[in-house]
Design a protein around this nucleic acid. Structure first.
Lengths: 242, 242
DNA sequence: AATGCCAAGATTGCATACGATTTGCCCAAT
DNA sequence: ATTGGGCAAATCGTATGCAATCTTGGCATT
């Protein structure tokens, strides 16, 4: 099984100023492939394979994998390699608990700083989201998941706290993995209407309401998951070893 | 100027099971050196120097520096090297804003899970903190800052969310840097009595009150900073370049 | 004396080589 | 037929070498 066809090499931002760091570009590309499920959880990402795919040596491929490991998107096992993370139900719960804690604060900060231009950008983003929602096929599904996460990231961006923004980057990415593994209804996973409701409250300057809506939204996402089932890999988990 | 004397090679945990990863040990050692100010902000950490200090090649030293860069403790400039971070006042504000958001949630989670054994551990920790507070000299100051941060980390640990725990790891470490740069009264920086007050509320099961006390505590730490002054290095900052 | 320029030294970015560890397979022995 | 041992392939961990880039010191010029 080759992963080459799963990678979209045009992922790198067009404004790729002077190849700042090639490992960063590789990280972005792999990140995108993981969060919209072109790379399934458990997939092995060997250093040499990644390296030859991007025409770099193992050194720089390794750096990219280390970064992904740091943000929890891949897990590395010593002398074995890197694998796309397979978050456990417990991990999933902690991810959403963290989001429930952080996102209301982000909303509260955003309501103070959001501009009409921001609102317009959000509306465009939501339109696109809607578009993918109406389409069929796996590609549209992927795009929808991505767009849905982007809404939360845009919110973090206008909140203006780069640290929280980075935390959200990680949480949204890992949420995508969790939804891929445990999502049940799938399409309705990240209710589009709830995004617009949050945005409406923000536009009216009602931070309280926006924060409440956001919490409900996160609750709904988590409620759509089936976190009871043990993941299939079994044994290790069944025996709760390692 | 040699940094070798600033590093404490016994930092690595005694339970160093089978050298899991040498770069991790180096990271820990450097981290500790940074957060208790043996390495001042702005200090250059060259790959070869770090490597020879720990008797490893540049490859593994580099990995350690990359990890530290990821958690914001060092900044790397392309083709120039890695430097201990020099957080700006704005960064400092964002760090404390993040803590104000996250720590009350951690306290709320901790009150549900804390055990009498945990309480006893906390009391011992606070006693030690007090001990350092009474001593004089830079070594005691450093130990006090470290112990004060450890209180917050222990809290995150009993809260039981490993993701938030990692976020707090980063935030506490960066806070130490900020206090080193902008702290004014220094010793009273992280009021010891406020820690005991939080713990008392936790012991009584009063999560509401503990969370409120924690917010006030964070406010006090930040209020003790002087974030108006531009950092001394001048010029670059005065012109707000780079 | 101050400024601009150039070359030498130092340091990083990256690739590659080699040893160590793990995995998988094959074959023999029970 | 199943189990156990051992060898081979694959992959990772680490060191090191080379090219590119940046810094620094000195020298010439204004």
């Amino acid at each position: 099984m080759n992963i080459s066809e799963k990678i979209n090499f045009t992922d790198t931002a067009p404004e790729d100023r002077s190849q700042e760091d090639r490992s960063m570009a590789i990280r972005e590309s792999l990140r995108n492939a993981i969060i919209d499920r072109r790379l399934a959880p458990g997939t092995k990402l060997s250093e040499s394979e990644v390296g030859s795919l991007f025409d770099v040596s193992r050194t720089v491929a390794r750096a990219a994998l280390q970064m992904l490991a740091f943000e929890g998107l891949v897990k590395t096992e010593r002398n074995r390699g890197a694998f796309v993370s397979n978050p456990s139900p417990e991990e999933a719960r902690q991810i959403f608990a963290s989001r429930r804690l952080i996102e209301p604060g982000i909303v509260a900060a955003a309501v103070e700083r959001i501009t009409p231009e921001d609102i317009a950008r959000f509306r465009r983003q939501l339109d696109e989201e809607q578009r993918f929602l109406n389409e069929r096929g796996p590609a549209a599904r992927r795009a929808e998941i991505k767009a849905s996460g982007d809404f939360h990231l845009m919110l973090a961006s206008v909140a203006g706290n780069v640290i929280l923004q980075r935390f959200m980057d990680e949480l949204v990415a890992r949420s995508s993995l969790v939804i891929a593994l445990y999502g049940r209804s799938g399409v309705s996973s990240c209710g589009h209407s709830e995004h617009t409701a949050v945005l409406d409250a923000l536009e009216k300057g009602d931070g309280e309401r926006a924060a409440k809506l956001m919490i409900h939204h996160i609750d709904h996402i988590e409620a759509d998951l089936d976190l009871q089932l043990k993941q299939g890999s079994g044994l290790k988990d069944a025996l709760s070893l390692a």
